[in-house]
Simulated scan of single mutants.
Amino acid sequence: MAAFARSAPCWVDAQLPDLEAGKRFYGELFGWTFRAGEGPYADAYSGGKLVAALAAKQDGRMPTAWGVYFATDDIVASVARIREAGGQVITEPVRAGRAGVLAQAADPGGAVFGLWQAGDREGFQKQNEPGSFCWTEVHTRQKDRVDAFYEEVFGFQGTDLAQDAEPFQDTEPGAAASTPAFRMWSPAGTEPGPDTAVGGRSVITDAFPAELPSYFLSYFAVEDCNSAAGHAVRLGGRISAPPFDIPYGRMAVLQDDQGAVFAVLQPPVSENGAE
Rank of each mutant, 00 (worst) to 15 (best):
A2G: 07
A5L: 10
A5Q: 12
S7K: 00
A8E: 14
C10T: 08
D18A: 14
K23C: 05
R24N: 05
R24I: 06
Y26H: 09
Y26I: 06
G27T: 03
G27A: 10
E28C: 08
Y41L: 10
Y41G: 05
A42W: 00
A42T: 06
A42K: 01
Y45T: 08
G48L: 06
L50P: 02
A53M: 02
A56H: 13
A56Y: 05
K57R: 14
M62H: 13
S78H: 08
A80R: 15
R81L: 10
I82Y: 00
Q88R: 15
T91V: 14
T91Q: 15
E92Q: 14
R95D: 13
A99G: 01
A105Q: 02
A111L: 12
A111G: 08
V112R: 12
V112K: 09
L115R: 05
G131R: 05
G131A: 02
S132Q: 05
F133G: 00
C134D: 04
C134M: 00
D144L: 14
R145Y: 04
A148T: 13
Y150M: 09
E151H: 12
V153F: 06
A165Y: 10
A165M: 15
P167R: 04
F168A: 13
P173C: 07
A181V: 07
A188H: 06
T190A: 09
P192V: 07
G193M: 03
A197G: 02
G199R: 09
V203H: 05
A207P: 01
F208W: 15
E211T: 14
S214R: 09
S218E: 10
S218N: 14
N226S: 11
S227K: 12
H231V: 04
R234A: 11
A241L: 11
P242A: 14
Y248N: 08
R250N: 00
Q258P: 11
F262A: 07
V264F: 04
P267E: 02
P268H: 00
P268K: 02
E271C: 07
E271W: 05
